[in-house]
Design a protein around this nucleic acid. Structure first.
Lengths: 232, 232
DNA sequence: ATTGATGTAAATCTTTAGATTGAGAAAATC
DNA sequence: GATTTTCTCAATCTAAAGATTTACATCAAT
């Protein structure tokens, strides 16, 4: 079934020692898994990741000392290709969203069956992502919600459309923090020409200075970049 | 099986007339669906949504006149609870991501089986989201990638931490497009004091002017908002 | 008690930004 | 062919921004 012969190294992180044993037994039944460690501490978990380079880390989120989300982030920062499967007691939208944002490959609830856990591990080992339908819906609801306010503002007339292509170039350089001299040098035109363009941009965007122009640009999808209203 | 008795109104939008007929026949076999219209035009499709208020719109993305993504956005803007299922020929990550971002409830490929299409429609009618595993993986890859650069930059030293609380207030007002006079008025301090603060901010953020300061602030998670590197 | 950080403010000066007017050349549109 | 946009540039002017120095009061920490 699977395209790898070697056993997959798995690390368990859960603050509840009993739960830890339970999962360990469950997973031990699967011959393809090799549990390289279990711990109740996020910090120890991170060190175990550094030591054993497990393919998968099954991680509880509500850990005592260190936040599970932070642990995910730190594991991702190691760039060892370690895949984190979150095993949480909470189906909170924000938790799911943040876990996935920080690099988790899957998120399942503790109430789910052992078969589902094994399935999730297999999917993740195969390079896929795994979110059960119910959690997936929560994720997407949250995801789309975070873009809603933004598209509402873009429902108004976007003044950026009135800019000429040259003005767009100038504005692009403005959004990179250039002054007149810098823009003139980069576009190989005189400084006074840049001033003309910038003044025309101000008129069209109905702003008074470059800072406001830059802010308008960033908040209205300029340069194919969008400012998402997502809490860090 | 399903918890609604009334037939679900469905609208088909696809620029390929043959394909349109094919889908129509497929869906007609399902007794629970009522196809209220088919069209090859995005604009006509939007008008049909206004007229018939279908539960589900099955929409092709690469339409001639108007972009399918834009059509999704406009349908969402109507706020009729219409659920859009994207039926696309392309499994491009960016397309999937943008479609979901704009409010699509599902995304399936034209190469998929009719059973899968029906399943997708049912899931969406039940209020869930539907993304096949392969497309889901593409989505999450793209999603996580869009946050990666950001967390990388935050791994560097964040100069914003050196600011005093008063300087943060001043910077906050700078990021709202205020000039010296505006900031002075809002903080009930003199303009020269504001200049002092602003100059100190420049020193600490290692920038030369207010535009660069504002850009630094926005790109480094100032004000609990984060700029996601996501294409519009 | 002294030190250091912070917040406030003024004075002065240089530089940049922004507003306005006018104007020529090329390209697109009609 | 005439007209309109667009891009270019200059000159001039006012306003704002930014740099620098000095100074004083407060508060927290040593």
């Amino acid at each position: 079934m699977r395209e790898f012969k070697k056993k997959a190294r798995i690390l368990l992180v859960d603050d509840n020692a009993e739960h830890l044993r339970g999962i360990k037994e469950l997973i031990s039944l699967e011959t393809n898994y090799d549990i390289v460690g279990t711990t109740t501490s996020a910090n120890i978990g991170i060190n175990l990741v550094k030591k054993y380079h497990p393919e998968v880390v099954i991680m509880d989120i509500n850990l005592p000392e260190k936040d599970g989300l932070q642990a995910i982030q730190e594991i991702e920062k190691l760039e060892l290709g370690t895949k984190v499967l979150v095993l949480s007691g909470y189906d909170d939208s924000d938790l799911i969203f943040r876990a996935m944002k920080l690099g988790a490959r899957g998120y399942i609830l503790k109430t789910m069956s052992s078969a589902q856990l094994v399935y999730a591990i297999d999917e993740i080992l195969a390079g896929k992502f795994y979110l059960p339908a119910a959690l997936s819906s929560r994720f997407f609801d949250y995801f789309q919600q975070s873009f809603k306010a933004e598209s509402a503002s873009s429902s108004e007339e976007n003044l950026l459309t009135y800019l000429t292509s040259r003005e767009e170039e100038v504005l692009e350089l403005l959004t990179q923090g250039n002054n007149y001299k810098g823009i003139a040098g980069k576009l190989f035109i005189s400084e006074t020409t840049v001033k003309t363009h910038v003044n025309n941009i101000f008129q069209k965007l109905q702003v008074n200075d470059r800072t406001q122009a830059v802010l308008y640009a960033l908040n209205n999808g300029f340069g194919r970049k969008v400012r998402a209203k997502i809490s860090a």
